[in-house]
Amino acid sequence: MAKILLVDDSALARRILRRCLEPEGHQIIEAQDGISALEAYFLEKPDLVLLDLTMEGMHGLDVLREMRRLDPSARVVVATADIQESTQRMAQEAGACGFVVKPFVQKQVLEVVGRALPAVGGPATAEEG
C-alpha cells in the first residue's frame, strides 16, 4: 500500500479522497496549498501526489512543475474540477502521470491511482486518467 499526499484547498475534497483511498489501505497525508504541498512532499516522501489546480497562492500546475523540477521521479495525478481537454494536456506536459476530475467517484479514483503507482520496480509513465 502507498503513502499518498492529497493537495487541495477544499477540506471537503480532501475528505472525499481520503474516503476513497483509506479503505484500500493507503496512508494519507494532506496539504491545503502549494507551498505546504512542496514542504510535505520533501518531508514525507509520498509514493504519489493527488494535486488540485485552482488554489490560493501557487496554481497546481506551478506546484507540479516545481515538484518535478526538484524531484523528476515525483508521481503526480492532477485531481481537479477543470474538465477541459486543454487542461489535461497541460498537466501531462508538466509531467502529471494521471488526471481525474471532480466530482470524485471512488472507482475512477482507484483506477487512476492504481495506474499511477509504480509497479514493482517499474517507472510510472504519463498517461490519461
Binding site: 484547498d9 477544499s10 485552482t54 488554489m55 490560493e56 481537479t80 474540477a81 477543470d82 474538465i83 477541459q84 481537454e85 486543454s86 487542461t87 497541460m90 471532480k102 466530482p103
Partner: peptide
C-alpha cells in the same frame, strides 16, 4: 467550484479554447 468548472470547462472543450479559473 465543481459545478461552474463543469459548465465552463464544457464551453472550453466544445469551442476548443482554454478557460482559466480564479479561486471561487
Amino acid at each position: 467550484n465543481i459545478l461552474l468548472n463543469s459548465c465552463l470547462g464544457m464551453f472550453g472543450n466544445l469551442l476548443q479554447v482554454h478557460v482559466t479559473f480564479s479561486v471561487p
